[in-house]
Each structure stands twice: as C-alpha cells, then as structure tokens.
Design a protein around this nucleic acid. Sequence first.
DNA 1: TTGACAGGCTAATTGCGATTAGCCTATAAT
DNA 2: ATTATAGGCTAATCGCAATTAGCCTGTCAA
Lengths: 206, 206
Amino acid sequence: MDTKHRILNEALTLFSEKGYANVYVSDIAEKVGIKAPSLYKHYKSKRAIFDAIIEEMNSKFSEQAKALSVNGTSAGADAELYKNMSEEHLLKLGREFFLFFLHDDYNRKFRKMLTIEQFGNPELAETYMNMYVDMPLSYQGMLLGMLVQSGFLKTDNVQVMTLHFYAPIYMLLTVCDRDPSREEETLKLLDEHIKQFNRVYGRTKE
Amino acid sequence: MDTKHRILNEALTLFSEKGYANVYVSDIAEKVGIKAPSLYKHYKSKRAIFDAIIEEMNSKFSEQAKALSVNGTSAGADAELYKNMSEEHLLKLGREFFLFFLHDDYNRKFRKMLTIEQFGNPELAETYMNMYVDMPLSYQGMLLGMLVQSGFLKTDNVQVMTLHFYAPIYMLLTVCDRDPSREEETLKLLDEHIKQFNRVYGRTKE
DNA sequence: TTGACAGGCTAATTGCGATTAGCCTATAAT
DNA sequence: ATTATAGGCTAATCGCAATTAGCCTGTCAA
C-alpha cells in the first residue's frame, strides 16, 4: 500500500480512538513511519486528511447502497431466497449483520469516528444516521417484508416489526463498541433476541 | 446562581455541542459574561471545569440510582402500581421515559457530551453505559417483571422482553439527539412500538 | 476605618502543534 | 548523462489558546 493510503488508514485508526482534535499530525506521521512535515507531501493539511477519509467513506457507502438497492429492485430473485426461511436462517441474518458491522475494521473505525465527530458537523450526523439507522431499517424492512409475504412472519406493521428486529441489534452494537469485553455476553443476548423475535412474530399454526 | 455554577452550566452546554477540545476557555467565559482569565479565580484549569461537571454528574446519577433501587426494594408498593395496567399506562411509561431523557436539559447535554468524549476515556464510557444501557434495562426489567407477575404481560424471558421494550426507545432517542427535527416522526413510531409491544407480549385471552 | 479577600480586568507569557522553507536522494523519463 | 520529480528530513516559523502576573474595586468583618 502506498504512503498516501497508509496515512489515511492510520489517521482513521487514530481519529476513531481519540477524535480528530486529540490526534496530532505527528502521531499520524509516526504510525506511518515518517516525520510530520513529510505528510504535507501527500495532503495539504490535517483537515484534508480527514476530508479524504470522509470522501473515501462516502464512495464506499454509496457503492454499498447501490448494490443493496439493486438487489432490492430485483425483488423477485431475493424473494426466492427468503421463501423457505427457518429460524436458523433468521439467526444467521441477524448475526451476520451484527458481526459485519462489529468486526469489519473499516466500518468499526469509521463508526467510532462518526460517533465522536458528528455533533460538530451536521453532514456527519446525517451520514451516521443513514448508515446505522435509516439504511439498515429500510433494507431489513424489505427483507422482513418478504418474509411476511412468504408467510414466514406475521404482522400488521412491518415498519415497527423491523424496528423490533433491528433496534436491539443496534443497541448491542453500541455496547460492544464501548466495551469489547462484553462481546460474548452480547452475542448470547443477540441470539436470544432473535429467537424470541421469531417466537413472537413467527407465524405458528394459526 | 453564582458564577461558579454558571461556568459549569455554560461549559456543559458548549462541551455538549462541540466537544471539549473544540471549546475555548474564552468561549466559556464569554457565555458567562466575564473574561477568560477570570475563570481561573474559580477553577484551576480548563480540565478542572470538565472534571467538576463529571463529578456533579456522578453525584446526581448516584442519587437517582439510589432512589430507584429504594423503590425497587419496596417492590410491594410498586407492584400495586402496576397491578392493573392498561395499554394507556404502558404507553405513558415508555413515553415519559423517552421524553424525560430527551428533554431534561441536563440529561440531554450530558448525554451528548458523553457521546463525544467517551472513547478517549474508559470511565466515561462506563458511565454512559450505566446511564443509558444497564440502568434502564435493569429498572425497566424490574417493572416489566412485575407486569408479568401481575399477569398483564406474558413471556418466558423477561430480559429479552425488556430489551425489546427498551432498545427501540434507546435507538429513537439517539435519532432525536442527532436530528431534533425528527422528533415528531419519532414520537409516532415510539407509540406504535409500544402498542405493538403490548399486542405481542400482552396476555390476551388465552 | 482598615485590611483582607473575592472576583473582575488587561497585558504578558508560554508552550505546543500545524505548517512552511529549504535541502537531499533516488528513481525514472528524455 | 542529465534533469525533473517524488518523497523524505531538519530546522524554522506562526498562530493560537491556556495560563500567569499583577493590578483594581467593592464588600465585610474586626
């Protein structure tokens, strides 16, 4: 990886741990293995490094969004997938979602950084909300909607059902972000959550 | 209110909006209506102001906790309260909890400040988690547990049921913190959440 | 009525962290 | 071969924000 990208990565790591203002350009430089002034051969200022991270992030994010909405449009194909769902599948769905967000390095760091910086910057607040609230709700709403169609789940209100599915995932995610040592405990709770969700919304014999 | 407390309040407001590092002592001074150096007649450093906020906060918090656990202990009395619960009552419970956390000025600012500062400071992360995850879960778990006892709700797993009750409240709260203009929309969703919660966990004729 | 704080102010001082200047070397194209 | 450029370094510089020095006034207890 070239220096320019290494700078971005190390900076993201540091920003996510301490916040923009508490990271010195010399910290970033040190992690990269160069001296602070050399950074300026690659970026015009500290702010520019931050902005580059955001930009990179936005493009990754919109790729993802595009990919999702493509699948969403070809609902026919996806519906097949969700036609004969089992509790196992549902567990897997929630767990994968959770673990992806939790462990994917880039996501994790980016999420932390956003959490710290969002209040000073309305755009970042919007990004955060898109990534961790609105998008997941609409994506999962779509999936769960299919499961209702296919008769695997039953509800009058898909939106609220989706909230019931996702909000605990979100909350447990924020717990792990703050205290990684609670991951195990949290994963158990996550499984129980999904099982109970299924018990409660699953179309048992009627 | 004396200057010393005004400093604390203004500082909290600013910290909650921009984060510790982005607030200058001169900003605080200006809000208070004095000059920066005069602050030092009251606090020995900027950090000391922050620490004083935390300390004040901790003592308020432990008062609250004590009060709650007192009620918790005198479960007999509280149980009475929750014996003949209606959906209206349940709605009120959730709504009050939500609105208290959302609107109480001190709580709101403190929560934002913690959100920003928590990652640099493990103690703060712990405080955050106590206040917004563990305490509410255990308190509401107790209440909902009573409702199960009294037959108003039905479940095999009070812990997960409580998660299902609280996680959406928590998530919607974080939405409003980030974008107050979504409060109305969010309150509607909150009500629907609780109604559906009741539909799903309520002991209907069996 | 005086003298010791309390609490405010202006004018330094300090220190640190971002950025710039200017130099050096290796590579790579002409 | 030579020259331009990319990318690194050291040694300033610059600017700003925290803090200190030191003065002034009003109050209140002795």
